[in-house]
Structure formats: structure tokens, C-alpha cells
Write a protein that binds this DNA or RNA. Sequence first.
RNA 1: GCGAAAGUGGCGGAGUUGGUAGACGCGCUGGCCUUAGAAGCCAGUGAGAGAAAUCUCGUAGGGGUUCGAGUCCCCUCUUUCGCACCA
Length: 838
Amino acid sequence: MEYPFEQIEKKWQKIWSDKKIFNAKNNTDKKNYYVLSMFPYPSGALHMGHVSNYSIADAITRYKMMQGYNVMQPMGYDSFGMPAENFAIQHNSHPRITTDQNIEIMRKQFDMMGFGIDWEREVSTCHSDYYKWGQWFFKKMYEKGLAYKKRSFQNWCDNCQTVLANEQVEDGKCWRCSSVVRQKELEQWFFKITEYAEELLDFSGVIDWPERVKTMQTNWIGKSFGTEIWFRMEDSEDLIKVFTTRPDTIFGCTFMALPPEHPLVTNWLKLKEEPENSKMHKFCDKIMNEDTINRTSEDTTKEGIFTGRFAINPVNGEKVQIWITNYVLMDYGTGAVMAVPAHDQRDFEFAKKYDIPMKLVIQNPEEKLILEEMKEAYTEPGILVNSDNFDGLESTESMTSISEWMTENNMGKVTITYRLRDWGVSRQRYWGNPIPIIYCEDCGTVLVPDEDLPIKLPENVQLGKTTQNPLLSADDWVNVKCPKCGKPARRETDTMDTFVDSSWYYARYADPKNNEMPFSKELADNWLPVDQYIGGIEHAVMHLMYARFFHKFMRDLGMVNSNEPFARLLTQGMVTKDGAKMGKSKNNAIDPQYIVDRYGSDTVRVFMLFASPPDKDSEWSDEGVKGAFRFLNRVWRLFEENLELIKNISVTLSDPAMPDRIEGSDNKLCAEIKKLRYSTHFTIKKVLNDIENRMQFNTAIAAIMEHLNNVYSIKNVETLNVAEKVIFVESCVAIPHLMYVFAPHLSEELWKIIGEENLLHEAGLPKFNEKYLIQDEITYVIQIMGKVRGKINVSVDATDDEIKKLALEVENVTKSLEGKEIKKMIIVPKKLVSIVAK
RNA sequence: GCGAAAGUGGCGGAGUUGGUAGACGCGCUGGCCUUAGAAGCCAGUGAGAGAAAUCUCGUAGGGGUUCGAGUCCCCUCUUUCGCACCA
């Protein structure tokens, strides 16, 4: 017989919902705890990745409720974005309709899982009561000088007249029409995240973030100390600024490398002597259309073209050739590189290929370098040569003095550079948040006034007619009066990156229905920072960094007090099947709905949490799900078989006089019951520790399984004396009490049928008694030269000498030591005896 | 290519500070129960040798530190994630 999971789960879901136990209160005596899962993109149905994510979050939610916190676990939908737009086009519908339908389905599935979500705080980013505040934030960014427009290069398909994401470019061709993709320079809106680069490197405001996420973000920001050096053009006053981390090699610079995107290059290409079909034009076009990952790859052949122009090295007045190359990026540093072929491998390869002069300026102190014989660049530290007054200095030490000297003589300055680039937020798409800007011929760029917010997306657009941004053809919407002068003007048609929506949603949950502001400061500070944030590792850098940036921005606006949005972070692993990520593209997805219908939500939760630690990938297994179901059935049967006994005794368990009576009767307890009592208290201790300190649900569940096996090993329950029966019942009751966080429906039901009045989250965490964890004997392992040769049981208070004596008496030990001399004996307390013998 | 992780039986995984490798679960094998099946229950299960006691080998591969290494150090390989317009 299977336990009636369907009936039980529906019943308790209704009770929880009716009693509103998951509706977080804004004002209580209890301490607040905010559990947040990354909100889902409403793709139509929950997948296993969601189930895994929310099972973890729900376990934490219920654990914290048992601990007595006022817990908030909200939910919402990240509902703007390209997939919804494409889906609507394919199905000849509108993204608003399909998105709302999808949300409806997902909401039902959340309920079927029984997650403890506070539905009164639900948000959806595509609803105007939410995106209004995204527009409001854009205006604030603009007012603070943090939103600005600049030209930047984007993947462009001429045929579709649209920008393409990197993932929409397949082998350099458009995914839709297969025409060749080129790089086009477009005016785009940016947020100045670089302004916060330094602060984003500081993680002192977070409590418990995985080291690897911090490292990835730190590397992404990529701070480096170096020197900016100013080269003058030979025949004009134009300056070329270069950034280098190796000012010690400046005297060895023999050429300069520019990317084709460099403004100087752009200017030169516009000159009359460079017709459209010139070599330089062709070269630049070719390089710009390669994708940047390939361009910077070390394997890529270095290519370049000599511009025929020269710059002057400020330190020695030497002429250096100016080249356009494929291996320098406009986005990093100053977008120009001083090339020192003798001491940089990329420059070395390039100089060899194009026969550019080299100059040795750092000599290897170990083995003298001869320029003509070098097979690769010498990049190690050494002694400066050919460097005027700096000759003879150690190269690493010379960096400071060279930089200082250059600063004094107006040749450059010491500077810090970040790899981090400003955040491009412009998207040429319909299904996103409109940027609140109006362009007027007379007044220029004008912000939309607050009273005109939200700018609602026009409904009557033609999706899929053209591949361009559909907003361009929404004439009624685009043509507006200038808010300043009233003359005809045009709206900005770009919408915002959806990462903007997801950068502050966690704060909106604190005050989701506010019509006056994004949220009130009081309520935000009441809940923020999020105590526990849970989501996929794929967001380690972008989403998590944008949200940190936004939070700091909101703090600087005086909207929140905290410095960080997420105090603790758990990055959960993927759900895989046959070693590959589960998903539509691999055609290996398992539908959670089907599994819940067959086995119930508790089974799915227990399986997902048991399959692996939350931060590791977990492999789906149909048989494993059955195993989880079997386990829950075993728990159910234990209570079914012993119901009368448990009911009768569990009532007296809460009688304060009971523990004393039991304790007094220790000598009447048989050995296996004493063991069972140890198991109960040990399991409680282990489960609490695994959840609280290690977030390791798989071992917590394993411990409960082991304990259940121990309970089942008591065969003669009827013949036990009263004291023994009490201990037996205690061992049973501990099971639903501990399992509430993993299998809440089943646990709640068992708790009820044994006669408990309150709900489990009100019962508090189970308690263990250290007294029952004391063991009178300890097993010591005996090792000889690191190999196990025997075991001894020793009383806890045995002295080292007694242990040594006993160890040497073990038969197998004596045998192994024959003909050997004992050099040393090491005793590790409560663990082992190690004998060194030769 | 750059950045970040991971690699333990047939499988998922355990092993918290260097101290009995393989907890727990799945699968498999044998048995009980049953008209039969399902379910359930009991026992066994890293490889090799041995009647057994026990011994040898074993944590991706190679080297090192240590009385003792899955755990620490160096090198190599493989897989996964991210790389700025997927979210």
C-alpha cells in the first residue's frame, strides 16, 4: 500500500493557505528572515531546475520558521525578454497574452508543490506597476550622470535590420536569415557601473558568499595598476594614450598597436586618401566582423596593417610605427597598446611576422639574452638595459621610478585600469521596459516627466512583420510633444536590458504595492539585505554584479541603508540527466508535473535534496525517485503500525515529570534501546548542524534514513517495558519533526494524527540532549606504518599508557610487529594509535 | 583563448580540522512471503588472492610532503559553467 500523498498534500496546502502562515508580517516582535530564490522567467512550466531551487529555498524557509523567525519567501516573474517576443511571433499572438498564460500555469505548479510562498507580494516585471519604477530609476541614473549615451559596436544583420546577441550569431551568420553579420556602430545607452568598480571589489558587506563567486567577480572587474603613457603623433599634435602594466619596458617600444575601432583609425579612414576600397578599409572591416573571443584567443593568427604613420616615444624621442591589429581591444585600457616585442609574447609574434624592429631592454641576469637568437619574448623580471638613466636597475623595482619620472616630465601618469566596462542597457526590441527619453530638435534629450510615467508599451504593434524593433513603426506612440517646449518630438524606441528589471526586484517585494515610490525606505530596511539568496551559478557574475551595483546606487539615493543586496548566497547546481543539462534543447527534460502526480511533492523534494549537495549538479534518476518514495512510505508505515502506542505515549512525552521518571530507570533499559536513544539524539544533532552550519541537506536526509533503519531494528516493541516504550516513541516522533523541512505535507499529517495540536512550524526545532550522546567506550584503530592492523575498544577514561598497552596486545598487531623495532607510537585522542616500526 | 569549479564502486553520493575510504540511497545477487505479479521483509555487494584468519591493490594520471593523503603542494588530462544583447 502506498501512503495517500495526494489527499494529504491537498489537505495541508489548503490549511497553510487558509491560515496564511506564509504571509510575512511587516511588524512583529519576531526577527525577520528573508529567503529569496532567483525569480523565474515564465517559460510556460516549471522545470526540474526550478523545483530543485525552490525545494532548497522552501526547506530554509520552514527551518527558519521553526526557529521562530518571521520569514518572507516571495515569488515573481522576470517576464520581459526576447524569448517571449519570439514565441509570440511564432504563435501569432502578443507577448502580454502568452506571458500571462505562462504565469498562470506556473503559479498553479508552485501551489501543487506546496511551497511556502507569500503570494500577496507577487510581482511581474512586464506589468506597468512594476516597470514604471524601472523608468523612474533610469531617470535617477540620468540625473546623477550615471546613464549616458555613446557609440558602440554591435552585431548587426543588414537583412533583418536588427542587433543580434552573440548567441544569435552562428558561425558569423545570422541565426534567422543566415546572412553575414557585421559590426555596426550604434548610439546606445549605458549605465556607468565602472563608477562603482572599486566598491564592487569590496565584499566585506556580505556574510557568506561562495569564494568562487567572489573570485569570478573580482576577475571580471579586473583591476590593474599601471601607467598611462602619452605618445604624440609625428606629424600632428594628436595624442595617443596607451595603458601599460609594464612601464619598465617603455624604452623597448618599437611600434604601437591600435584596434580598428580606435577613434584615430576611424578618422584616418574618413580621409580622402583612404577610398572605400583601400587596403586599410578592407582590413578594418574584416577584423571588426570577427567575434571578440576569437580575436583575443592566443591561437588566432596575429594580423595587422601598417598605417604609414609614426608616433614619438616620449621617453627617448624615437619614431615608432603605428599598426592596426586584430589583437588589441578598444574596450580595455585606453584602447591602444605600446608594443614591446622583446618582452611581450603577442608583440613578439607580431613583430617577427611583419619584420618590425625589436629592442632588448631587460636583460636576464641568469643567462644572457641575445636579441637575434630569441625564440620567444622574455617576460620575466631582470636588469634594465638600453634605458638611459635607468640602466642597471632591477626591472620590477624600476616601475615606480620610471612612472614617477614620466609624471614629472608630463609624459604620462600612474593610473588604475579596470577590465569592467560600462553596462550597455539599450535593446532594440519591443518586449522590454521603454527608456523614458524624448528627443526634441530644439531641446535635445529630454527626460519624460514623472507624471507621465509609466510609459506603457503600445498594444497595437505589428510583431513579426519586420525584423526591426517594432516600436519604430508605432507612429502614435513614437510621435509625442516635447515635454519642455511642446513642439513635435520623438520617443526613444530602445527598451532596457531585462537585467535592469532583475537588479532591484528583491527590494520591491518588501513593499510590492507602493504607488508612490519603488518601495518605502522603512519597509526596505525592515527586510534588506536578503538573508539568503538562492540561484544558479550561471549568474555568478552578471546578474549578481548588476544587482550589487543597483543596490549601492539606491543606497546613494538614500533609499536603503544597507551596502549589499544579498547577505548570504547559495549557488545551486544544475539538474542533469545522463550527464547533460536537462532541457528542451537536449530533449532530456523530465516534467515535474508528471512526477508530482505519480509520487507527490514530498517525494520530489526529498529526492532533489537527497541527490547531491545543493551547490553541486545533481543527476536525475527515475529509480532514485522511487527510492525517495519508498522511504516516505516506510515512515508512514512505522506510524501506521505503532499508531496506538505512539498516540498514547506522545501525549505523556510533553509531561514535564516524564523525563525524570525515565532517567531514573536507566538500568532497566536494554542495550538496544539505549542505542536507539543515542540514535535519536545523535540524528537530531546532526540534522540541525547539517542544515544550520553546512546547508547540506543530502547528509541530513541520509541521517534520518539511517535513524529510521535503527527504529525498525527494534522488533519486539510490545514486550518493552514502559520506560523503553517511551524512548521508542520518542525515536519515532523525532522523524516527522526533523522531516518537516524536507517533506512538509507528510510530516504535518503524522504530527496531527499522533495528537499534536499545533502546526509543525509552531512546534519549534527538535531538541537533543548531550547527556545521551556520551559514550562509555571508544574504538581506537591501530595503524602500523599507516596501515590498519586492528581495533580496540577502550573505556573513555583510559590513559595513553593503558591504550598503548592494549594496542600492543592485539594478536594481529603482535604478528605484524615481529622482527621490527618500534620507533614511535602516536595516539590521536578518541581516534587511533599509530605505530612507527622498522 | 581568458576566468571559475569539479573528477571517489555498476550509478547518485558520504568522508566537517590530514586519522578505519565507500555512510545513505539506487542497481544487482540470493532467500522469505505470494496462485502469480506488485509491494514488503532478511542477507550479501570496490577489485584481486585465500577454506579461513588475513593480505595486496584502490579516490582522473604522474610526482612530492607525512607515522599516516580522497583531503596539503607541483605538473598533466578530462568535464562543466561564465565571457558583457539568453535570462
